[in-house]
Computed example of a mutant assay.
Amino acid sequence: MNLRALRERARLTVLDVAKDLDCAESSIRNWEKGRTTPKLEVWQVFRLRDLYECTEEELVQAVKESMQAQEA
């Protein structure tokens, strides 16, 4: 499951996540498309985990899958 799938499973929009993490919508889109790797502060990682209702391991795996999609 990639980052977009996690977000959609949590029924969140890109805007919802961007507001909650205090970052740009374009950042969220770029992470989901594998264009950039999320560079987050510790509080943002935990908040993203809570928003997406997943474990840290699932979040890490989702980042890897999103980045692999860009490489393909």
Rank of each mutant, 00 (worst) to 15 (best):
3 L>Q: 03
4 R>H: 11
4 R>L: 12
5 A>S: 12
5 A>T: 11
7 R>K: 07
7 R>P: 05
8 E>H: 07
8 E>P: 02
8 E>D: 12
11 R>E: 15
13 T>P: 09
13 T>N: 15
14 V>N: 12
14 V>A: 13
14 V>C: 07
15 L>F: 07
16 D>R: 04
16 D>S: 09
23 C>G: 03
25 E>F: 00
26 S>Q: 09
27 S>N: 14
28 I>N: 03
29 R>F: 08
29 R>Q: 15
29 R>L: 10
30 N>S: 13
34 G>C: 05
35 R>K: 13
37 T>C: 13
38 P>Y: 03
38 P>I: 06
38 P>R: 05
39 K>W: 02
40 L>N: 09
40 L>W: 10
40 L>M: 09
40 L>C: 12
41 E>A: 12
42 V>G: 08
43 W>P: 02
43 W>M: 07
44 Q>Y: 10
45 V>K: 06
45 V>P: 01
45 V>L: 14
46 F>V: 07
46 F>T: 08
46 F>I: 04
48 L>H: 01
49 R>Q: 15
49 R>A: 05
49 R>E: 04
50 D>N: 15
51 L>E: 10
55 T>Q: 07
55 T>L: 10
56 E>M: 06
58 E>D: 15
59 L>R: 10
60 V>W: 07
60 V>H: 10
60 V>Y: 04
62 A>D: 05
64 K>L: 09
66 S>N: 05
67 M>K: 09
69 A>W: 01
70 Q>D: 05
70 Q>M: 08
